[in-house]
Computed example of a mutant assay.
Amino acid sequence: MRRRTFRGAVAVMALTTAALIGTAGSALACHSDDNRPHPTPGKATPCAEGTDLSQSDVDFKIVKNRLNISKVHEGVTVKRIVVIGGDDGFNDYTPGARGLDKAAPWNDLRAPFSRNGRQADIEKWYLCGTKTEKPTETTTAPTRPTKPTETTKPSAPASSETVAPTSTTAPAAVPAGNESGTGGGLANTGFDNSWLIWIAALLLVAGGGLLALLKFRRKASE
């Protein structure tokens, strides 16, 4: 019984020692000379749901494996900065904690050391936080006053001057030889009456001939 208990205790100690050695190895594999972040071995954990920010939300530059964030844009709040690089691990920065200023600028942010003890290149970095969208301003053009409707000017009244009618009646022509208004002793009535004179003369001649014929018959009958 004692041997079994001893063997069990040795086994537990061996497992514990291996675990500690493994943890120490991991810790040594992910360390940084910057005391502001949390050097964390393994794959970087993503931002909480709905807290992803874009690199375009800040003004930044990377100079000699150092990330410098000079400005955070309006409406953006940064709550986490993750810098990845090296063999296995990342530096996890929290603004306002462990000596890192709560507001930008944040300079000399870096990845952890590689296993060879050299400063690792920055392979990737990202931000977590919140962002408030700026409401879109709608510009309304000023309304111009409507011009009053122009009333139609009354047309000029027609001229009241009456044009005198032009006379188209020409005076009757006076026949030649009757300029004084008489023709053969008869008044000028506007038409030629000489044919009536000839008819009357013929009737007189015919009447005279008829009377002569009647007288001749009476004498012949006696």
Results as ranks from 00 to 15, higher is better:
Gly99Arg: 06
Asp59Trp: 02
Ala48Pro: 12
Arg118Pro: 00
Ser70Thr: 15
His38Lys: 13
Val78Gln: 08
Ala44His: 07
Ala103Trp: 00
Lys71Ala: 13
Trp125Asp: 02
His31Tyr: 00
Asp57Thr: 05
Trp125Gln: 03
Lys102Ser: 14
Val72His: 01
His31Pro: 01
Thr40Tyr: 06
Gly75Trp: 09
Pro41Ala: 13
Gly117Gln: 08
Ile122Val: 07
Arg144Ala: 14
Arg98Tyr: 02
Lys134Cys: 00
Pro39Tyr: 04
His73Thr: 01
Gly129Ala: 11
Asn65Val: 05
Pro105Thr: 03
Asn107Arg: 11
Val58Trp: 01
Val76Ser: 01
Ala104Cys: 01
Glu133Gln: 12
Cys47Pro: 13
Thr138Gln: 15
Ala97Asp: 11
Pro37Ala: 02
Ile84Lys: 09
Asp57Leu: 09
Lys134Tyr: 03
Pro37Ser: 10
Asn116Cys: 06
Thr130Cys: 07
Asn65Ala: 15
Asp59Val: 10
Thr139Arg: 14
Asp88Ala: 12
Arg144Gly: 05
Lys102Met: 09
Asp101Pro: 11
Ala141Val: 15
Gly96Asn: 05
Gly129Lys: 00
Ser70Arg: 08
Asp52Ile: 05
Asn35Gly: 14
Ile69Leu: 11
Phe90Gln: 10
Arg118Lys: 15
Gly50Leu: 05
Asp33Lys: 11
Asp101Asn: 14
Cys128Lys: 03
Cys30Asn: 11
Lys61Ser: 14
Ala120Glu: 01
Thr132Arg: 10
Arg110Gln: 14
Ala103Phe: 10
Thr140Phe: 08
Ile69Asp: 03
Phe60Arg: 07
Thr51Val: 03
Asp121Glu: 14
Pro135Val: 07
Glu74Ala: 10
Val78Asn: 06
Val58Ala: 04
Gly86Gln: 00
Thr139Cys: 11
Trp106Leu: 01
Val72Asp: 05
Asp101Ala: 15
Pro46Thr: 11
Thr94Arg: 07
Asn68His: 14
Lys61Gly: 03
Phe60Thr: 01
Lys79Ser: 15
Arg36Met: 09
Arg110Ser: 12
Arg98Met: 13
Leu109Met: 06
Thr132Met: 08
Trp106Gly: 03
Asp52Glu: 15
Leu127Cys: 06
Gly117Thr: 06
Ile62Lys: 12
Val82Ser: 00
Asp59Gly: 05
Glu123Thr: 13
Lys134Gln: 15
Lys131Arg: 15
Phe60Gly: 03
Glu74Val: 01
Arg115Trp: 04
Arg118Phe: 13
Ser114Phe: 00
His38Asp: 14
Val76Gly: 01
Thr40Asp: 08
Gly50Val: 00
Ala44Glu: 13
Pro142Tyr: 02
Gln55Asp: 12
Cys128Gln: 11
Phe60His: 12
Ser32Trp: 01
Gly42Leu: 12
Ala111Met: 09
Pro41Gly: 11
Pro142Ala: 01
Glu133Gly: 07
Val83Arg: 02
His31Gly: 04
Phe113Lys: 09
Trp106His: 05
Ser54Gly: 04
Pro46Leu: 07
Gly50Glu: 05
Ala141Phe: 08
Glu49Val: 04
Glu123Asn: 14
Leu127Arg: 08
Lys124Ser: 11
Arg110Met: 15
Lys79Phe: 01
Val78Ala: 02
Gly85Lys: 09
Pro135Phe: 12
Ala120Gln: 02
Ser70Asp: 14
Asp34Thr: 10
Asp57Met: 10
Ile62Ala: 05
Cys47Met: 10
Tyr93Met: 07
Thr139Tyr: 13
Asp33Thr: 09
Trp125Leu: 02
Cys30Val: 12
Trp125Pro: 04
